[in-house]
Design a protein around this nucleic acid. Structure first.
Lengths: 246, 246
DNA sequence: TGTTTCAATATGTATATACATAATCGCCAC
DNA sequence: GTGGCGATTATGTATATACATATTGAAACA
């Protein structure tokens, strides 16, 4: 196979990108099954008429993406797919509502500063007692409540939050960009609406709801814990998986 | 700052790895805020006493990971975190059950081969009418039903599935490794258990359940559609986000 | 026959160099 | 001023080269 014949692959113009997408195409289409030894670097060097560094750049990226495994002296081999990992995109609620073509409205229900309770510290995974800001908000899609938000902000980590009333801006967009965050953990589960949630979302008590909880850290410091509750009909999380992608 | 002083970073031995983790540490700790211009390649070159290629390798990876943005003639800048993307790990159910320390048991409830109905084709996103294998299974954790599985397998893509009874092995593990898959889409939502699901999971009708649906393609061909239903108490999905990681 | 040693091999990392490309700055003419 | 133009600059890509490192296979040896 010559360079010209593979020039229709969608790699981003540069040669190592094309080598990368050529090979990943072969793997993902099944032409090269798991365990198959892909050509040596020096073979690809002659196939693509380029230097070994260029081939190496492509193969190193494939290895980092987990599509192939490289063994010294033996060559590079197609790995079998193992973990069903998917990229879950969790957007700002305003974006999600507007994607539905509905007008978005935000409402702050409550805002309290308090010394962290035992439950607060457990939710934030906070060691020491300190001040937290507790917020309760609602997000509307058209006239209907779309999501209910319960949030704790660690004031030791984000002291400037105390000056914000969160009447006009939701805490999510306020925090993003203002606080660098290095780690987040999401928990997703189904619950039955309790009376408080049912009233806030205008649904029956006991109705199924999707709960997304997110904990965020920045350099080991807990920043915020937020619980979004969606009525069952109103929301579906979508996660896509596409291996490699260079 | 000299090379020696930064040698305590945890980068994987090689120099470009250390440069990469040094810089990402600065960004994630907040020392370099979003918008900050990180040193030019030639500056890092003298700081680490290495060639520009080595620095470039590190910076290119940071750019691909989305931590920095590179602009010709201007330099490289710390990007502000934007999409709250998270890596959602969806494991085999056996693994999840065993992680709970409970004995795992699998049960095939039903298996039918049929010509695809309109609903089947919609679920599989199948164009043409063809044969599908419809499976219904239960996964147990100890004595309690843990998850209910409804699966369609596109027999045009996986003809050998017709020879498998799926009495001893669950369709998930059977498919993995046998069929190369290039793309998957997950949908996660909360529903109320209907009578059928309630009976299968031994819960009350109307109780909240977490539903995870997965559609899988291999090189444009639909492979399978599966719907897992979990009783609300029994399951929480966990997704972690950690930017970069080299 | 079993073990040690050594050379061959493929990948891993780094260098110096070269040229392409895009964006910006400043100069100059108008 | 201001509009265009070329020089400058930082990144983007590729090359040839070099040496390190892990692993395998075969030769040499006990």
């Amino acid at each position: 196979m010559s360079v010209i014949e593979t020039a229709d692959a969608e790699g981003g113009g540069s040669l190592h990108q094309r080598i990368l997408s050529d090979i990943s195409e072969k793997i993902l289409s099944g032409a090269w099954a798991p365990g198959h030894r892909i050509p040596f670097e020096h073979e690809l060097t002659t196939e693509y008429n380029c230097s070994r560094m260029t081939v190496n750049k492509a193969l190193s990226q494939l290895a980092k993406a987990g599509l192939i495994e490289r063994r010294r002296r033996s060559g590079s081999f197609v790995r079998r797919p193992q973990s069903q990992a998917a990229v879950l995109e969790i957007h700002d609620i305003r974006i999600e509502v507007e994607a539905l073509g509905l007008p978005y409205r935000y409402e702050r229900v409550a805002r309290h500063k308090r010394r962290s309770s035992a439950e607060d510290r457990s939710l934030l995974e906070l060691e020491a007692i300190g001040s937290v800001l507790a917020l309760e908000c609602r997000h509307f899609a058209g006239k209907r409540p779309f999501a209910h938000e319960q949030r704790l902000i660690n004031l030791a980590a984000v002291p400037e939050a105390i000056d914000e009333e969160f009447l006009a801006i939701a805490p999510g967009p306020w925090l993003i960009g203002r606080v660098p965050w290095s780690e987040a953990e999401h928990r997703i589960r189904a619950v039955a609406a309790d009376r408080h949630i049912a009233a806030a979302l205008d649904i029956e008590a006991g109705a199924p709801c999707l709960v997304v909880e997110r904990r965020t850290w920045s350099a080991e410091h807990p920043i915020t814990h937020v619980r979004f509750t969606y009525a069952a009909e109103s929301h579906t999380l979508v996660a896509r998986f596409r291996p490699s992608q260079g």
